[in-house]
Every structure is written in structure tokens, then in C-alpha cells.
Design a protein around this nucleic acid. Structure first.
Lengths: 359, 359
DNA sequence: AAACATAATGTTATCGGTTTCATCTATAGA
DNA sequence: TCTATAGATGAAACCGATAACATTATGTTT
């Protein structure tokens, strides 16, 4: 009853042909089989114009026949270059993984680079270990989604070592750092200000690990600045620092409810956190936005499909990923070591999770 | 007004210390600086028990001082091994990227492997190109989320070449193939059967590119089998083959509505497609599940948060990713070339997007 | 004290390419 | 016809490590 037909073709081929191991061919082998030198074979691949078309053709045929596969490690070694690009990803950030990373991958592939990824899990020891792994692989360049503050000293080494680095998902104050990001501070400011515009004055903030990650810290600052501008006192009680996951959001929101004079609106600085918060609220029998307003950050694909649809900040994840990779590759190739800094713009997306405060 | 404080520490360090390029040190340099041979340095790192503790200490100090970083390409070359694992990802599958890939990454890291990822975009030429890139990098092993049917002949080469390969996200009929998957056929069968249990007899199927991807083909087969079991004739009109994206789902569902004697339920063989379909339906003023039932597949994180919450099949993405990587690494290390096949189980998750047919 | 095992280190070939420099044709210009 | 020059190829060093084998120093056994 199972759909065997689908796979049978493949199965047959394998069972027919499986046999002894085929030791992989080398240029040396191709060379002697063709009757030329290693050097000529090498040229035939990477500098065809330097070799007689006839010779080249013969080499290619022999290579084909021997099932030759180029050895990138050997090539990279002797050429002192690398076709690997390291991408350092923060925690299991869905928004990042889902969109920016794909964009980077797409672009890298087009340009003949392979991506090596590493996930820090917000742990600075892991972060360090991964960067070391990257360096051991002599990556041609590095993409960093910010860095953990505790590793500052460490990171200066990267820049100093002339590994092309570009930061993404945040802007860097330093003039000497390349980045393709957006203004986290400004975005947080705007959405908080929007909430105040809806008459809210007790506004909770549910934010990522700002003591570790400057991106999160900027959002906190933006939030504070918006309060200040509107003459609202900052209340530390109203700030909760959580890792951006659905479950953390759900639990944190319940703590907000316990505060006397509880917030009438919560700005969750990631959609995942926001959606978790909404669930938590529903469990407690509260309605969004009637009883409490929730705003998110990221505009992940599903922000528009949850109930209620989420008011949030749209971050240009795909464009950012693509541009970041583009810039990095240009740095890797180009001689120009000019500093490149791009600030992409974000949008405030108003849906239905925030309402004017009724009283 | 900007939060400069956050980054200023880093900035200062960099501006203070940025200077000339540091040529990266080699074992040879460490050796001569320490007054020992290259071999001893190599041993100091990888076989410390073979070297006098005092010598080792001195080597380590010198290495530290010279800021030495091991060169993996060179090491891999001479050792004829590799610490890279290739992961071939199908299209921009959020569910995969979001969860399985993270799991793989976590596990790989623990074991000292780096991940190289490639995205096929459902294009068999790209798929081939990526696999070639992987081979050029001499990846120690390969994780394949199925393969495009058009590349069958090509893939036999991989298996034949003794690159450890494990397939994931689907089961393979062939006895000689390693996989960690789940039964797509069975899962599709169950959810379709569930729909029939709700009295539906006109059930649409919105499925991934089954002519390219056997995983999708299995879901189609499961759907057909369930219909057959219940004595319902298969109607080709009710099957739409689409790439799994939100937008495709939204548009495809509108075509379903144009069919005379239109379906009363739609099984969308991916949650993304299902959520897109729900949006499309809402746009047309139809209610889910009152007017039409929608079932999904994957149980992505947000399936529980859309409106209405989605009835779907839960796929153990994280466990699958972790186990796949575990199996692969065991294959890479272990001498045992025993075939490993794991079928993980899926669950039918009933939420509110499907209702009994009223008439 | 001779014989031998063991520990610590050095020598050298090798992995699979790239690249510089030298060599050898073949064609063009004088 | 002789030299200049470009075109095609080869020889060999090198990239940065590893590992088999050789060597030397140290300690143990009888």
C-alpha cells in the first residue's frame, strides 16, 4: 500500500551500481593520465586561457572519466584564500533563521561561497569557541549579528586581524565598524511613542537579554527615551529581561499582571515574546487589546496571522541579509577597505493588538 | 540621544589597538621560536601525552604569545579528514530552518563539527551545484532532506563514494539508505481520514511540488489512500501542487473556490500553505471552519496562534534534527557501516480549524 | 654492566593543490 | 636568416599541517 513507485528508480540504480570505494582522483592522476603536468591541469581549471584548447579538452575528458572532484581545502591552502564565510547567529532567533539567513545563503551561493553557521545560544563561551572554529577554517569573512558584550575584548582581535567582518541587525556607534542594520533605538522609540499616543502611561517592556546584547539594550534605551519625551517616569518594575521565546513571553506576562498598578500596554521587543504574551493573557482570561495592549517587534511572517494580528515593527530581514552578504563579499574581493555602514529603515505596522486606553 | 554608552567600550579598544596586519603564525614559527621541531608542536596540540609537560607548557605560551590559530584546512588535508558537515536544505522551508537546523547545529557543535548549509530552492541544478561544492570541501558527511527526483542518478554517486549520508524528513524505501524521518504517507493518511470522519467527502489537497519531491509525493499518496479506504473517488481537480509559501496558499485557495461543487475541506500539506489559505478565505469573506475546514501539516510554532488555531500534524522537528546529526556523526566516526533507519512518530493535533460538515 | 624497554623528540615524505620561473616552440618583424 | 615576442608547458618550491620512522636519552631488569 505504500507508495513504493516513487523511490524505486533510485533504489534500483543504487543496488545495481554499489560497489567498491572509489578513491578520489587528484590532479596528479589526471595529469599523468593525460600526459601533461600537474601545473597544466591546474591551469585548465582556473586559467583556461593559458592552456591550449585541445589540451584542455583532453584534460576535461579525463577528469570527467576519473570522476575528479576539486579539493577546496588543498586549493585554499596553497592559494591562502578561503571560500567559506562564517555566520554567527544569536540564539534560536526564528526571525533571523527564517529569513535573513536564507537571504545570505542565496547571495553567497550566487557568488560561489559556502556558509558555515554557528549558533551562540547567548553564551559568550560558545560564541568564542565558534569564532575560533571559524578562524581555524580560515573563513574569508565573518557576519556577526552583534556580539555578546562580554566578548568585546575578544572581538577587537577579529577586526585587527583583518578578517573582513560585517555586523548586522544593529548599528554600531564605532566609525570603524562595517554594518548593515537598522536603528533599534529609533524603532523602539517610535512604537513606544505610539503606545503613549494611545493614552497609555503604564507601559511594560519585555525585552531580550539587554545586559548581554547591545541590540536589546538599544531597544531598552529607545523605550526609555520615548517615556522621557512624554514626561513619563521610568519604572524598573515594568521592565522584564527574557530570552526571546514563546514560553518566556507567556510566563513573563503573568508576572506583569501581579504588579500593583499593572501596565495597560506591553511592548514586547520581539514578536515571539509578544505572541507568547498574548497566549499568557488569554490563559488568564484577559482580552487583547481590550484589557491590555501588546506590541511586538520584527514582523515575522505570522505576526499578521495570530489573534489578534500584531502591531509591530517591520524589520527588513531579507533585504538586510542580502545586503549584508553583498557588502561582505565586496569587502572580501575589493581592495577598497572603506568602511561601509548602512541603516535600513523600519516601519511601524499597525494591526489590532493595541487599542486606545479606555478609562 | 543615542545609547552610545553601550558600545563605547568596544569602540575605544578598537581604536586604541588597531594597527598593522598580523600575519598568522604557523606551527613552524612556533617551533623555531620554542626551539623544538614542528612535529613536537603538532603533538603538543593533538597528542599532549606524547610530549614532556614542560615542553608543552613552553609551546603553549609561545603559541599564545604569537596568537597562533590552528589551520583546519591544512590539518584536514594532511589527515585526510574533514570537520565539515554539509546540510542540504530544500526550499525556504521555515519549519525546517527554524527548528531542525538549529537542532543539527547544536549537536554538530557539541561534537566539534561545523555546518555548511546549502539551499536548493527546489532547483535540481542548484542542488547539484551545492552538492559539488560540498564535495569540493570534502565534507565528512551529508544530511539530505530528501532529494529532487530529477537528480536520482546523480545521488547514487554520493552513496557509492562512501560519503556518509543520512536522509531526513522522509523515509526511504531503499534498504541501503540511512534516514531519520517519519512516515509522510501515514500522517497524510490519518489527517485525511480524520477529515472524512468529520463527514467531508469533497476534500481538496494543497501539496508541495510532488513531482519533484518524494516527501510531497508520499503525502499525496497518503491522501489518496485515505479517500480510497473510505470509498471516495479521487478527483484530480481537487489537487493543487504549490510551493509551500504563504502567498501560494492564499492564491491557490481562491482557485479551489471556483471549482463547481467546491471542496468543503482542504488539507494543506504544510502549515504555511494552510495559513495562507485561511487568509485567502477570509479575504473572500468565508469563515474557517464554519464555511470550510482547513488542516495543515508540520505544527510550526505559530500553528497554535493563528486564527483559528490550526488542526495539523505534529512533526518532531527538533528531535529529528538532533537524531539525524547524531546518527551521521556516529557513521562518520564509527567503523560500523550498518544501515540505520529511524521512523519517528507524528501526532494529529486537533485544534479549531476543522469542523464537522453541516448540511 | 649489558640488554632492553620506554619516553621524548627530530627527520622527512606527504596531503592536493598553486605559482614562480625556466624552457621550448612557433610566429612575426627586421 | 636572425632575433624578438608571445604562447604553451614543465620543474620544483611552497602552503601548513600530520605521521611513519629514526634517533637519542632515560630508566629498568637481571
Amino acid at each position: 500500500m505504500k507508495p513504493v513507485a516513487v523511490i524505486v528508480g533510485f533504489a534500483k540504480i543504487i543496488s545495481l551500481l554499489t560497489g567498491g570505494t572509489v578513491a578520489s582522483a587528484t590532479m596528479k592522476m589526471i595529469a599523468s593520465a593525460t600526459g601533461v603536468s600537474k601545473a597544466t591541469v591546474s591551469r585548465a581549471f582556473h586559467a583556461p586561457h593559458l592552456v591550449d584548447p585541445k589540451t584542455r579538452l583532453k584534460i576535461m575528458q579525463v577528469a570527467e572519466q576519473y570522476n575528479y572532484v576539486y579539493n577546496a581545502a588543498a586549493g585554499d591552502l596553497s592559494r591562502k584564500k578561503s571560500s567559506l564565510i562564517g555566520v554567527l547567529v544569536p540564539g534560536p532567533n526564528k526571525s533571523f533563521f527564517g529569513t535573513s539567513l536564507i537571504a545570505m545563503q542565496d547571495k553567497a551561493q550566487e557568488e560561489g561561497f559556502s556558509l558555515v553557521i554557528g549558533n551562540t545560544k547567548y553564551d559568550c563561551r560558545i560564541e568564542k569557541k565558534i569564532v575560533e572554529q571559524f578562524q581555524e577554517h580560515r573563513v574569508a569573512g565573518l557576519i556577526l549579528t552583534g556580539f555578546l558584550k562580554s566578548n568585546e575584548v575578544y572581538f577587537y582581535n577579529l577586526v585587527r586581524k583583518d578578517i573582513p567582518c560585517v555586523f548586522t541587525w544593529e548599528t554600531m556607534a564605532d566609525q570603524g565598524l562595517n554594518y548593515v542594520g537598522f536603528d533599534n533605538y529609533d524603532a523602539a522609540f517610535r512604537i513606544t511613542d505610539y503606545l503613549v499616543g494611545l493614552k497609555h502611561r503604564r507601559i511594560g517592556l519585555l525585552v531580550g537579554p539587554y545586559s548581554k546584547i547591545s541590540r536589546a539594550a538599544s531597544r531598552l534605551e529607545g523605550y526609555r527615551a520615548a517615556l522621557k519625551k512624554n514626561g513619563i517616569d521610568f519604572d524598573p518594575q515594568l521592565v522584564k529581561e527574557r530570552e526571546p521565546s514563546h514560553i518566556e513571553g507567556k510566563e513573563a506576562v503573568k508576572e506583569f499582571l501581579k504588579i500593583k498598578n499593572r501596565p495597560t500596554a506591553i511592548f514586547a521587543a520581539s514578536d515571539t515574546l509578544a505572541i507568547g504574551a498574548i497566549t499568557g493573557l488569554k490563559e488568564k482570561g484577559l482580552k487583547v487589546p481590550e484589557d491590555i495592549s501588546i506590541a511586538g517587534f520584527d514582523d515575522i511572517e505570522f505576526a499578521a496571522f495570530c489573534d489578534p494580528p500584531l502591531t509591530t515593527i517591520r524589520v527588513p530581514s531579507y533585504e538586510m541579509g542580502k545586503l549584508t552578504m553583498k557588502v561582505l563579499i565586496e569587502m572580501i574581493r575589493g581592495a577598497s577597505s572603506q568602511i561601509r555602514q548602512y541603516d535600513l529603515s523600519t516601519d511601524l505596522i499597525i494591526r489590532n493588538s493595541c487599542a486606545e486606553l479606555q478609562r
